[in-house]
Amino acid sequence: IIGGVVFIAVELLMRRKNPEKISFEAGSHDEIAKISYKQAFIIGLAQCLAMIPGTSRSGSTIVAGLLCGLSRTGAAAFSFLLALPTMFAATFYDVFKNRELFISNADNIYLFLLGAAVAFVVALFVLRAFLSFVSKFSYISFGVYRIIIGAVFLLFVL
């Protein structure tokens, strides 16, 4: 719920602060190539907020990207690129930690590789769909979605 409120607040702030920069049609590829070291460092620091339980890594980096002056699509695309080293490191660590599963049964390696391939293909489709959504709509709708989902989950917990 808090993340949804943050998305709405940042979207409204960016509209008021710099309406032309928050345009829907910004080119993310050119924009990512022009990200400064300072912007990348700040967005990378925001990724550390994901260590707080319940905090979205992509949400924190997208919000930081918007606050650093990136467009909607640029912030989302950079957030997903920033996830790659983190996911590879986490995967490598998990495989290393559970290496005995692969040693004891070679079929596990094939299942792991199949799962990784399927996850990669699905991630590409989801990324493309999300970037398409962000290029057409503001983050306000995404914030409202998060608030509604959070409220539904709270109803089940309480």
Rank of each mutant, 00 (worst) to 15 (best):
I1N: 03
I8K: 09
A9D: 12
V10N: 10
L12E: 15
K17W: 13
K17R: 12
K17I: 07
K17T: 11
E20Y: 08
S23K: 10
A26L: 01
H29K: 07
D30P: 00
D30K: 07
E31M: 01
A33F: 02
S36T: 14
I42L: 15
I43T: 01
G44Y: 12
G44H: 11
L45E: 09
L49V: 08
A50Q: 06
T55K: 04
R57A: 11
S60F: 09
V63S: 11
A64V: 08
L66A: 11
G69T: 05
G69S: 05
R72Q: 06
F80N: 12
L81F: 12
A83K: 10
L84G: 10
P85S: 12
F88W: 14
A89I: 15
A90G: 15
T91P: 14
F92R: 09
F92T: 15
V95F: 14
V95H: 13
N98W: 11
E100I: 12
E100N: 12
S104L: 09
N105P: 06
N108A: 03
L111M: 13
F112C: 08
F112E: 03
L114A: 11
L114R: 07
G115Y: 06
A116P: 01
V121M: 09
V126I: 14
L127S: 00
F130Q: 03
S132F: 01
V134N: 02
V134K: 00
K136T: 02
F137A: 05
S141W: 02
G143K: 02
V144T: 07
V144Y: 06
Y145I: 02
R146W: 07
I147Y: 04
I148P: 08
I148N: 02
I148R: 00
F153Y: 07
L154W: 14
V157T: 13
V157K: 13
